[in-house]
Simulated scan of single mutants.
Amino acid sequence: MQFSGPIVRPATDADSVFIEVTVGCTHDACTFCNFYKGYPFRVVDIEKIEGDLQEASRLYPHAKRAWASGGNPLALSMDRLTEIGKLFKKYLPEANIATYGRINDFYQKSVEDLRQLKELRFNDIVIGIESGDDEVLEAVNKGYTAEDIVRECKKIEEAGMDYRVIYLGGLAGLGKAVISAKRSAEIWNQIHPHYMYLTTVSVLPDTELYEEMKAGKFTEETELERIQEFREFLRNLNNKITVDAVTSTNGVTFRARLPEEKNKLIQELDKFILNYSKEYEEAMQWRRSVTRTV
């Protein structure tokens, strides 16, 4: 089994069987992302996918989770996804197929199409929504709007397909975190993912956002602002959802079920903000070391 592109997946899917389905991302233009630089989007040959699945079936015949690797395999046509889904079902019959999808991957797929994909065990899709604030979505060139997010997620829900989402804090920039968080919560309250990865951006070299920062067009939020953004977003969130903020990019980490643990979580974040110190800000300088100009 060989991979010709980077394997990018959530930490929660680390125990899945990885099968490369596509290489690269159809968009590959988000200003903060360099995951797929140097890997133009392409579809893996069906023969290679089947060969990898044959190998996987010998090693893990009873696997319950599979990850269709690639930037956004759901961009593929229904015919190709159906062909791929049937192969997964043949060789890993007990496995659900999770993968990444972009909001615009669903534009040309009907609710019935999504139902068919779920029958083939495509489920628990991960969508990097990042923000529900149209100003942020435009600034980072996500390629869709908040209205698009709501429309397409409602289609996914109508099809009965489970999905997870990513909220990427810090994208609004200095001084804009709280208002952006409120705008995002308004959009999140109209959709119903069951799980959310709550993380925060690191401005990486070889990205457009990095160049904007060097040119003075973008200023990072402080560590305190990032935590205030999380707090404001969660305070305004009414969803029944699991929030997973356990990632190395966050200044505070937690995992919580909302609404059951919401009040306790907000209280803990308020306490952290109240006791925030300059020493903590200095301790988080590792993020600055990542983005420092060499």
Rank of each mutant, 00 (worst) to 15 (best):
N34I: 03
Y36E: 10
K37N: 13
R42P: 01
R42C: 07
R42M: 08
D45F: 02
D45N: 11
E47I: 10
E47T: 14
E50R: 12
E50K: 15
E50H: 12
L53P: 04
Q54Y: 05
S57M: 06
S57A: 15
A63Y: 01
K64F: 04
A66S: 15
W67N: 02
A68S: 07
G70H: 10
N72A: 14
L74T: 01
L74I: 09
A75G: 14
A75D: 07
L76Y: 04
S77T: 13
S77N: 08
S77D: 03
M78P: 01
M78V: 08
D79Q: 12
L81P: 08
L81K: 04
E83F: 03
I84F: 08
G85K: 09
L87E: 12
K89I: 07
K89M: 14
Y91Q: 10
P93W: 11
E94T: 12
A98M: 14
Y100C: 03
G101P: 01
R102E: 12
D105N: 10
D105L: 05
D105T: 05
D105H: 11
F106E: 00
Y107P: 02
K109S: 07
K109R: 13
E112V: 11
D113R: 06
K118M: 10
K118P: 03
E119Q: 15
N123Y: 02
I125L: 12
I127Q: 00
I129G: 00
I129Q: 00
G132H: 04
D133A: 06
L137D: 04
E138M: 11
N141M: 12
K142R: 15
G143T: 13
A146L: 06
I149C: 06
R151Y: 08
R151M: 08
K155H: 06
K155Y: 02
I156C: 02
E157I: 00
E158C: 04
G160A: 11
M161W: 09
V165G: 03
I166L: 15
Y167L: 10
Y167D: 02
Y167F: 14
L168M: 10
G170I: 04
L171G: 05
L171V: 11
